[in-house]
Amino acid sequence: MNSPCQALRAALLDALDRGGAPFLDPRHQEHLASCEACRRLCSEEEALDALLVATADSAPTGSLDPDAAARLLTRLRADLDRALDAALDRIPAPAPPSPELLQRVLEATRAEREETLPDVELEPMPGGSRWFRPALAAAAAAVLLTWVSLRGGAALDPEGPRLAPEDTELLAWLDVLERWDELEALEPVEREALAVLDPGDALLLEWGDAQ
């Protein structure tokens, strides 16, 4: 609101306080001619004043007609609402964060990010088969399932477990899994060969190595 508007508004309020006596000096008249907002304000205030006068004449208790009071409150609330929005719009946008903050956040989160890294797949060994490990695991699982199904219905031996032929086979596979590190160190060709051998062949080879 610029100062001619403020001066006019102050004069208007003063006039209304004094019962609506003429308030406009030539300076205000000149401003009114050029300011649409002030013209609108004046006409609204005059209408409101007329309403108040009419209500005062018709209401024996001197209180406002409820409808008029409601309209007045609604108008005041709407005006205040618009002014509130204008005031909120004047709040400047916050200054951006400092350029160093990005690096700071990345540094501060680095340790925890490294802790929460998802499982990374092993790089396939050069020349090796990427199916070697799953194939071996699947074979072990199949043997284990077979063993469980064969032994499932048998009653427990009070003297403890005894090794059956299939138990020996299972132990051979468990032995293979225990020696995983050695297997990882094998040449790809050797590992692939081992993956397609059945357990009996593997045991035979192992026996041959031992001789």
């Binding site: 304000l41 204008a86 005031a87």
Partner: peptide, 18 residues
């Protein structure tokens, strides 16, 4: 929230009306 702000800031907002 708006009602609270209107109430608290009414004197300033009224000054800013036009």
């Amino acid at each position: 929230a708006r009602e609270n702000l209107r109430t608290r800031l009414a004197p300033l907002l009224a000054e800013d009306l036009v």
